[in-house]
């Protein structure tokens, strides 16, 4: 059961990654090409659907499947780059605090507390409102706001690991401090950080969708899934598939990432406890 969940999660994430990487090759139509004579063509399983547009078209007659695939690329891009950014910030802070302790740790804890006191959505909205929307603005904003889990976990794990004998043994073998931190401590907390990375990636993707839904995320005509939901929301009672399709895509991707994260946590946790 556990294994199945991990495999399913990994399969979903891998599928999304393939869509993201090979989006230009996989899209059947130009996702930006408008065709006002074929607005709101329903997907093929509904009456009036056509095999030319499998998932139908949107209000401007753009192919929905193509936009969904390009949207996967944007979601994955945002998920991965925010996790890299917040991972670097959080891990650096956490490892420094956990390793040096004392005053350094107090400063790190203070920074983490400050960050926890900030309402993420509000600050993201304000930033995007002031700076203007754009893909990299969204990445930077979310990345600079989501590092606290990394910091907290890295700090706790570093404290735990640095008290172990193999760290003392590394010192006794003549390792430098840089080498002890990067070569001995970091590889041994990496599995904790990997799990945090999956959690944060799911959160970042949802956050981007929320921002885009509010019109402050990825600017049109880029097809973010959140933006697609937003653009379709006026028709949700008449043509529910317009928001169902990107909504389900979002649900599946986030679910897949979470399954992967849970599975990794169980697997890696079991291995280190051996």
């Amino acid at each position: 059961m556990r294994r199945a969940a991990l495999s399913l999660g990994a399969a979903i994430v891998a599928f999304a990654a393939i869509l993201a990487i090979f989006a230009p090759l996989l899209m059947p139509h130009d996702p930006f090409a408008q065709d006002l004579t074929h607005r709101y063509t329903p997907p093929f399983w509904l009456p009036g659907g056509s095999s030319a547009h499998w998932l139908g078209t949107d209000g401007l007659g753009r192919d929905y499947l193509s936009r969904l695939i390009l949207g996967a690329r944007i979601s994955m891009l945002i998920g991965v780059s925010t996790v890299i950014l917040s991972g670097i910030i959080g891990t650096t802070l956490g490892v420094l605090g956990g390793y040096f302790g004392g005053r350094t740790d107090a400063v790190v804890m203070f920074i983490i507390s400050c960050r926890l006191a900030i309402p993420v959505i509000l600050v993201a909205l304000t930033t995007v409102f002031m700076v203007g929307s754009g893909l990299w603005v969204v990445v930077l904003t979310i990345g600079l706001l989501l590092w606290e889990r990394f910091a907290i976990v890295a700090r706790a794990a570093t404290r735990q690991v640095s008290g172990l004998d193999y760290i003392a043994a590394a010192w006794a073998a003549g390792c430098s401090r840089t080498r002890v931190i990067l070569g001995e401590i970091l590889p041994n907390i990496a599995h904790h950080l990997l799990v945090i990375a999956t959690i944060d990636m799911a959160i970042a993707i949802l956050l981007e969708a929320a921002l885009s839904f509010l019109g402050l995320g990825v600017p049109p005509p880029l097809p973010s899934w959140g933006l697609m939901i937003s653009e379709g929301k006026d028709y949700m009672f008449f043509k529910p598939w317009v928001i169902e399709i990107p909504g389900i895509a979002l649900l599946i991707l986030v679910l897949g990432i979470n399954l992967l994260g849970d599975g990794l946590r169980d697997r890696l946790g079991a291995r280190t406890e051996q």
Binding site: L164, D165, Y166, A168, A169, A170, W171, A172, A173, G174, C175, S176, E184, P187, N188, A190, T272
Partner: peptide, 24 residues
């Protein structure tokens, strides 16, 4: 000191279970 440690003077620790880095 770092040059001496592990070269001219070496140390072994109490717990063989935790004295080797599990990641390598």
């Amino acid at each position: 000191m770092a040059r001496l440690r592990g070269d001219r003077m070496a140390m072994i620790f109490q717990e063989p279970m935790t004295s080797l880095n599990p990641a390598y």
